[in-house]
Design a protein around this nucleic acid. Sequence first.
RNA 1: GCCGUUGUAGCUCAGAGGUAGAGCACUUCCUUGGUAAGGAAGAGGUCAUGGGUUCAAUUCCCAUCAACGGCUCCA
Length: 647
Amino acid sequence: MIKISFPDQSVREYPEGVSGLDIAQSLSHQLAKEVLAITVNNQLMDVTRPITTDASVKLHKWDDVEGKYAFWHSSAHLMAEALQALYPGMKFGIGPAIENGFYYDVDPGDGVVMKETDLAAVEAKMLELARQKNSFTRKDISKADALAYFQTKNDGYKLELINDLEDGTITLYEQGSFTDLCRGPHLPGTEPIKAVKLLSIAGAYWRGDEKRKQLTRIYGISFPKQKMLDEYLVLLEEAKKRDHRKIGKELELFTFSSSVGQGLPLWLPKGAALRGRLEDFLKKIQRQYDYEQVITPHIGQKELYVTSGHYAKYGKDSFQPINTPAEGEEFLLKPMNCPHHCEIYKFKPRSYKDLPIRYAEFGTVYRYEQSGELHGLTRVRGFTQDDAHIFCRPDQLKDEFKKVIDIVLYIFKTLDFANFTTQVSLRDPLNQEKYIGSEENWIKAESAIIEACEEKGLETIVETGEAAFYGPKLDFMVKDALGRKWQLGTIQVDYNLPERFELEYVGADNQKHRPVMIHRAPFGSMERFVAVLIEHTAGKFPLWLTPEQCVVLPISEKFNDYAEKVLKLLNNSDIRAVIDDRNEKIGKKIRDNELKRIPYLLIVGEKEMENGEISVRKQGDGDKGSMTVNSFVELINQEVATLLGEV
RNA sequence: GCCGUUGUAGCUCAGAGGUAGAGCACUUCCUUGGUAAGGAAGAGGUCAUGGGUUCAAUUCCCAUCAACGGCUCCA
């Protein structure tokens, strides 16, 4: 007998070789039907695998990510089986479970192109195969046997994967007529897969390498119940309604024009006003932290970027240099603000007493992003960074870094961004030629970031190979409505540019020293930040940011004059108010202005005019009763102060 | 940049080898109303652009441009 302990600390005895399924069965019949995977001593396994020693276990049902993972991973294999049946000769790359569903990268063979319209047939085949209730069978074989097997199938992709594995036992999983190289775990069988939706088809480079063949990636999702799939699809539709591109159009915040150019956003008046308010908000914080605003031009001599290293790294894939009538003169549309700020630093000799110097600028930069990368406001070719560069002494570095973390966290908190991750982006030690600067400087820079994060108690994810070419960074990542991850705030430590620009200060020892630079942008870019803000709020912006805080709605044309008077009073009190004096009934005006997401609707009719009041209706919250304009102004000011944490 | 999809009125979308339609928005008129859609009339489109096939193309084919879903990239 072996001892099996459970998450609730209870311990039970089972015969040696008992499986997760047996254990589930011993606990309850229902559990046995629902269990999808098992963790045995921290290792995720098939529920059918025998357990041979004392172990602590956790059984996973659909509610656990581990359960879903096994379910979707098995679904990927099921899809492969269906594809194999429908497309003889198809080769298979990799097919993992992902956060929402699964995919498989396949090679349908030369000249065979899979289209979106082919997916329905694959779905049908999957369900047909699932109903055969085949089991997933695990097989341990030697590497040589595995190679021999996939040799017979002539699947070069699997052969490559196996060749990269260490020598020893290799596991295959088989269900129905499909056998795959796989670590597992899988469901006991295909039967629980009751609902399948193949969502999209896309090209994906083999092993993520754009120099290698592009395979066909099919994304799908599956569920144990049709109803769950239906609900998921509704949820997807709902998420699409939050898309900033859609809301940006509806609320007249921004647009694009192919006449102006791809990826070059045009901010409409309301969007520009909202963005301006965000900028003012940050400027105010920066004043408190002793930043100084600077302004630099949109272009700079090419040499400036040769010096910084940007030209060597990005020059040939960028907007090309601007030539002038003068022979040999070349300017670059600036892709970065830092070189300009370095030149400001060099304007005069600096003393150690002057540091840190913090130069901030809402600097508009231009980068020729690949056309396929452009995406609404989140990835554009012309955008404004809420940039600043801190020039400090090495002994000030960590403190300065921590202060920037404070700024970013304050901004995220004020704007109610709760779901962000903090990522420490380090260089890839195996790929050193991507970076400039000395080993010593990189070690100093990376440890400064890691220590600052530790001292701030930030829970960070470390990603190697994600550093900028001149230094490591701390990135604040946020997801959009459809779960795509975007980098917003970023803080970077840089020993390299000060060297390249020969920045100096005179120390207490009367010797020349080199400052350290921190590059930082709490929003990242105004464009991307506003995009994510739109998706997070679904366009219902906080009162202090929203383009129009209230709208005055006269009940009929008889009250238009009074409404105008109210409007003037509000505007005089710095409340952003508009009037809707269209010849429409009040119900219509309420509906239209609710859809425009205006926070307060102010209804005025005979009653209000007599009492010198307004009836206040809060967006999404109905009638709040009537009050004087002065009390309403007070209410708004109070609410804004609360949102900004000023009370 | 690569793979796939899409492109019809300001917006959301129908449609078909014989040169266009709806709803909303817009304009005018009627209505003057009390908390999420009052009524009527009108105006609005080289059917993304350029070629080709055809008696005839917005519809079929090719190319280009742009948008969308991914991959790669992201200073």
